[in-house]
């Protein structure tokens, strides 16, 4: 979505989107089954370095992207630090009970979320949605009706944003753009959602008719405007990920930062 931000095209942009997705998604499962904070800290450093060096974006922009990560780091780790179970008490005040175990577990959770976020950002910033869906059709055999629906929907976003502004201004003029309380807020969401959704549905219907007429439902062999293939950069990415993963384990074993090997 963010390809309008000025950047250089690096080898990460050249990798096949499907391959990238298939390399990144399993990392979620791998990370969930790692319980040693040292490993996660090393991986965070490694993948942040990969992202910073090869995303092709300016340092200024990358640091801005990292701002929300700071909040989610705090918010995911804090509940566990303050309210987690543990034996060695560090601090107790009313309901708050900070222990050594819960502290490390909280920090571990923070790094876990950070890693997912870095993978997500790395993918989103180096992949054009158009190529992603073309590649999914060609390499992953996704049915064209799904892929082209996604592509059409993405193209509709600017129109939706414009409509949102129109509705917002209309409500403002009528002094109906604010509401109090939980109920009022839900009503407010409805006030925005009904016109936006109904218009989107009508538009989707019209576009679907046009797309059907032009043969976008054709499930058999078809040609593509963009031909995406696999290349050497996919191998590079695979090797780099394997290296960071292996190094993370090795360094965690040889030079641990924290004395805990399992946070459970």
């Amino acid at each position: 979505m963010r390809w309008s931000i000025e950047h250089k095209e690096t080898w990460l942009h050249e990798t096949n989107p499907t391959v990238k997705l298939l390399l990144f998604l399993p990392m979620f499962i791998v990370i969930v089954f790692v319980h040693n904070p040292n490993v996660l800290i090393n991986w965070t450093i490694g993948f942040t370095a990969l992202f910073m060096s090869f995303s092709g974006y300016r340092m200024k922009h990358m640091l801005l992207f990292f701002v929300p990560f700071f909040f989610i780091f705090i918010s995911t780790s804090l509940s566990m630090i303050l309210f987690g179970k543990g034996e060695t008490t560090w601090f107790r005040f009313g309901l708050i009970h900070v222990t050594e175990e819960s502290f490390y577990r909280g920090v571990h959770l923070g790094f876990r979320t950070l890693l997912f976020a870095i993978f997500g950002l790395m993918f989103a910033l180096t992949t054009k949605p158009v190529f992603l869906f073309y590649s999914l059709m060609q390499q992953a055999k996704l049915k064209p009706k799904y892929a082209y629906s996604f592509l059409a929907a993405i193209r509709l976003l600017p129109i939706m944003l414009e409509e949102f502004q129109t509705v917002h201004q209309a409500l403002k003029v009528r002094r109906a753009a604010k509401a109090k309380g939980f109920r009022g807020k839900l009503e407010l969401i409805k006030r925005y959602a009904i016109p936006l959704l109904s218009q989107s549905i009508r538009r989707a219907q019209r576009i679907a008719v046009a797309m059907e007429a032009k043969g976008f439902t054709n499930e058999r062999a078809r040609t593509f405007y963009y031909e995406l293939t696999l290349g050497k950069y996919d191998v590079y990415l695979f090797v780099v990920i394997c290296m960071i993963v292996a190094m993370g384990y090795y360094v965690a074993d040889a030079f641990p930062y924290v004395p805990i090997k399992d946070v459970r």
């Binding site: 009706k145 059409a152 959704l197 989107s200 679907a208 976008f216």
Partner: peptide, 15 residues
């Protein structure tokens, strides 16, 4: 699902 269903679902979902 027909293309119409898929497209409408996806458009609503993207909102």
């Amino acid at each position: 699902l027909k293309l119409t269903d898929v497209l409408t679902t996806v458009v609503v979902a993207i909102v």
